[in-house]
């Protein structure tokens, strides 16, 4: 499903070289629920950007769903993000001028899907997260937990092989946070591959595999149960 070999990311700021990731090797199989844990500055954000195809590595190979993506152009990466990855962010990152339904339709618009199919898919995704009665609400009219579920629906709508969640509970109260994590677990049980990035070990424990990262290297990789 996902294979990184010898991935390094080096930032050049003036004369100083900062090694954010140092020769990472990582394989994730289809259907896994992986948590990547590490303190801030450990390189986990950089790793998530690379996994999410928002950025390309300085060195190494990255195979995602059978495709080598480490040397693609910006627009090619946009296509990969659109087709293969569903993002869930800490700050929800919904467009506040669009309704829940329109937010969920957005990735499908960029896919060039026709209006009818787009709407059907968006409705199905929103129903999956239990928001079929909040279709025409703007994000500002929804609670934090509901907003995050809209974001999950958006990630699901395009039916991507990989769902990437970056601190999905970071902005939520504990009740909403638990709801969101429960949704993610449910999605995983339905067969979606999920990578969760967090600094919170309690959140990470929901996953079936925990990868700890520190100073740009993987320090432990343990499978639960």
């Amino acid at each position: 499903m996902l294979k990184m070999s010898n991935i390094s990311k080096i930032y050049q700021t003036g004369a100083v070289e900062v090694i954010a990731l140092n020769k990472i090797n990582l394989t994730v199989e289809e259907g896994e629920f992986v948590a990547i844990v590490g303190p801030s500055g450990s390189g986990k954000s950089t790793l998530m950007n690379l996994i999410g195809c928002l950025d390309i590595p300085t060195q190494g190979e990255y195979w995602l769903d059978g495709q080598e993506v480490s040397k693609l152009s910006d627009d090619e990466l946009a296509d990969i993000r659109n087709l293969k990855i569903g993002f869930i962010f800490q700050g929800f990152n919904l467009l506040h001028k669009l309704s829940a339904l329109e937010n969920v339709e957005l990735p499908l618009i960029y896919r060039g899907m026709n209006a009818k199919e787009r709407q059907e898919r968006a409705l199905r995704a929103l129903a999956k997260v239990g928001l079929e009665h909040r279709l025409h609400h703007k994000p500002s009219e929804l609670s934090g937990g509901q907003q995050q579920r809209v974001a999950i629906a958006r990630a699901l709508a395009g039916d991507p092989p990989l769902i990437l969640a970056d601190e999905p509970t970071g902005n939520l109260d504990s009740v909403s946070g638990k709801e969101v994590l429960a949704s993610l677990q449910e999605l995983n049980q339905q067969g979606h591959t999920i990578i969760l990035i967090t600094h919170d070990t309690q959140v990470a424990e929901r996953a079936r595999r925990i990868i700890r990262i520190q100073d740009g290297s993987i320090v432990s990789d343990e499978r639960m149960g």
Partner: peptide, 11 residues
């Protein structure tokens, strides 16, 4: 940024 993250191309 959001639009680009979910797959909007430059054009």
């Amino acid at each position: 940024g959001i639009r680009k993250a979910i797959g909007a191309k430059k054009r």
